[in-house]
Write a protein that binds this DNA or RNA. Structure first.
Lengths: 245, 245
DNA sequence: CGGGAAGTTGACGGGTCTCAATGGCCGTGG
DNA sequence: CCACGGCCATTGAGACCCGTCAACTTCCCG
């Protein structure tokens, strides 16, 4: 899993138009914050639920998800994480991490010491603003999921999840030839949508039989995106270019 | 509804131990940001869903809620807002407000011009950090609700909501004599928990008949908080004193 | 006294859950 | 090379939680 460390300046993510450019001074500073690069395998716990690491990560490569569980094991996936997403911000405000983060694929993380965060705000206010932006953006995604889980029917929820995963992968430069990586199983989908595994399977198959999407080799293809969007009452908001720390 | 404007320095909220103190310079700066004080009646739209005001508010007095709706009218309440909560931060990252905010009681708002936000980060990085804290904290609350809506049963959800509302009111200095303001009707509860109105009513009555709580005169009293907490698998995280902008 | 909003209750139907069994795929070890 | 086990996907049957429909009451306020 070990690979040479990439300088922030030539981070491959920065070539994507999804991300806003940073000044030279900012890049130098970010590089200074970077403590190490961490590679983990699929299934690894990036943050333990209820634990504490004090570290802050940026996901550089791969996918992951945030989750919480009840004592009897029921699990709720809060949102999925894509390259460029920040991990561990909520830990900064609480004594313990309120949620766990688990890798879906092999991942590469950029690790910062959490106690450097204050220095960032002081020396580079723009980067502070960017972190707020990322926090607000993640909340927006959770809001989206909340609307699904609370008020959409099972078939609408699944349609929504398919669209959402596809769009996010596209924005992260992960899709090609009209298909996006889809490294999750039906249990993940069920836990993200507040459904049972069995009902998730049946609903997913129904959509597939209707010819709206296809999953092959852990890749997702939206065959009739317009129908899916109508079904899910999907509406995307235009966003600023997102910051990358 | 009009009342005289309170200087931030003598804001009654600042006497609560819930909130972290600010330096003199910060208070002066915050006072400078303050554009006006706005009073609205119960039921007023503070932020229109899908609209745009560009303003940022702090809720000084009263309660409100954030929500999103589907085109056919299904509504999901994302979280409830208490004094000290920031309103409109997500608007800063998007072209339009992704959610609506509605007043539950008569409210008093402290209005800032949204485009001053950048100045705040530049001149008072600590306040920038505080805003990130508030954003992360609100996300944590939405995470909590997400776990309820996705994975708790109806009775567990309602127990959770009762505990949560009570604790939040306590922290905001709103409770007295062991009872907290409860300015919401059963439709609000249903929309917050992803339940139907009828089922919410039946479940709420069941808890009341079990003698676990009481609602009288729009005030909530937890009669057997320990039982409710066990029922809901409730666990509160210790937090830093929260910032107040 | 009238009317509307909110709460309450019963009956019924259905969407979703649970239980259970089967098959495919794949890595491992004999 | 094949047997085996484990993970995942799939499917059917039946139960139950929760939604919908509808009627009625209570409360408040004009």
């Amino acid at each position: 899993m070990q690979m040479e460390i990439v300088p922030c300046r030539s981070c491959p993510l920065r070539t994507l138009k999804t991300f806003a450019p940073n000044s030279d001074a900012e890049l130098t500073f970010i590089q200074g914050l970077k403590k190490q690069e961490i590679n983990l395998g699929a299934g690894a716990q990036i943050l333990p639920e209820g634990g504490r690491t004090g570290e802050l990560f940026t996901l550089l490569f791969g996918m992951a998800f945030r989750y919480r569980t009840l004592r009897d094991g029921r699990r709720q996936i809060l949102n999925f994480l894509f390259p460029g997403d920040l991990i561990g911000l909520q830990e900064q405000i609480a004594v313990n991490s309120p949620h766990g983060v688990e890798a879906l694929t092999d991942v590469k993380l950029c690790a910062f010491a959490g106690d450097n965060l204050w220095e960032l705000y002081r020396k580079h206010p723009q980067l502070g603003y960017d972190i707020t932006w990322l926090a607000a953006h993640e909340e927006h995604i959770v809001d989206d999921n909340m609307l699904s889980v609370g008020r959409r029917t099972a078939i609408e929820r699944i349609a929504m999840l398919l669209i959402h995963m596809f769009k996010r992968a596209e924005q992260s430069g992960l899709s090609k030839d009209g298909s996006a990586p889809f490294p999750i199983n039906q249990q993940h989908i069920a836990d993200a949508l507040g459904l049972s595994l069995v009902h998730t399977n049946k609903t997913l198959r129904k959509l597939e039989r209707m010819g709206l999407h296809k999953v092959e080799n852990s890749r997702l293809r939206l065959v009739k995106p317009a129908v899916l969007q109508r079904m899910a009452d999907y509406f995307a908001m235009p966003l600023r270019a997102r910051p990358l720390i």
